[in-house]
């Protein structure tokens, strides 16, 4: 009886320890991105059996399996954009290789992948923000002009030039990491983060007036009274 209790105790204690460790280590660090088609992190951790078949079938050696002691769950596949980004293969061999469905085969068009989201994190060092024309992150983007655009704004420092600001659009950015990889600075000013970290969220009840107006094909509250602009009559042409 004693020995059974001992065995049960030892067994449960070890399992508990492992469970707690798994819990604690299951948050994905900011610079680790999952392969294309990876399910949400919670579901991914229940599905991936850590076989590395996705790693093997990636022709660019993008993917790695995490080792014990790194902050990614032991044995699961990830990549770091600044090391080797995802080249967005048309046939997505990594997804095809996965035997468990941790990588979802529903993903058949790589431009629909959402491995992460690029963020121009540092406005103080990005060369375009300094008023130069670097544009490298923009030019290398496989989804150029959709995922990333150059927005022209006035340069208040010189007061006579424009700045072309690289601007990422979450509707199209796949999180491939090519932009971060190719940023010319010693430390990239644009980085790709897991979407959960990168993205904000509006409250559910918020509506954007201009969008509602476009949807309705006109103002929702009817025509508004035009009020006269007082005090400016003199300067008006």
């Amino acid at each position: 009886m004693n020995s059974i209790a001992g065995a049960a105790g030892a067994g449960c204690l070890m399992a508990l320890g492992v469970g707690l460790y798994a819990r604690q280590a299951s948050a994905l660090p900011s610079q680790a991105l999952r392969p294309p088609g990876a399910r949400g992190e919670a579901q991914f951790l229940s599905a991936c059996i850590r076989c590395g078949l996705c790693v093997r079938d990636c022709p660019y050696n993008t993917l790695k399996l995490a080792t014990l002691g790194s902050s990614v769950a032991t044995g699961t596949p990830y990549f770091e954009a600044r090391a080797i980004p995802c080249e967005m293969c048309d046939d997505i061999p990594c997804v095809k290789a996965c035997p468990t469905g941790a990588l979802d085969r529903e993903l058949s068009d790589i431009s629909k992948a959402r491995m992460g989201l690029a963020v121009l994190t540092d406005h103080e060092t990005c060369l375009n923000f300094l008023g130069l024309r670097c544009d490298v992150c923009y030019r290398v983007c496989p989804v150029i002009d959709k995922a990333i655009t150059l927005e022209i704004v006035h340069n208040p420092r010189s007061d006579r030039h424009a700045m072309l600001l690289p601007t990422v659009h979450s509707d199209y950015c796949t999180g491939c990491g090519k932009c971060e990889k190719s940023c010319v600075l010693p430390v990239a000013a644009i980085k790709v983060y897991p979407i959960k970290l990168a993205k904000g969220k509006l409250p559910e009840h918020y509506r954007k007036g201009w969008e509602e107006k476009a949807k309705a094909g006109g103002s929702l509250i009817g025509d508004q009274i035009k009020l006269p602009v007082r005090g400016l009559e003199e300067t008006a042409p």
Binding site: S3, I4, G6, A7, A8, A10, G11, C12, M14, A15, L16, V18, G19, Y21, A22, R23, A25, S26, A42, L45, S46, C48, I49, R50, L68, A73, T74, G75
Partner: peptide, 26 residues
């Protein structure tokens, strides 16, 4: 005790269920 392994086996499966991840594979 040689039965520790069976308890641990059950424990690893329960840990998997409780954490929603392959806890033992860590």
């Amino acid at each position: 005790d040689a039965n520790t392994r069976y308890w641990l086996l059950a424990g690893t499966l329960i840990a998997a269920g409780a954490t929603g991840s392959l806890a033992w594979e860590w």
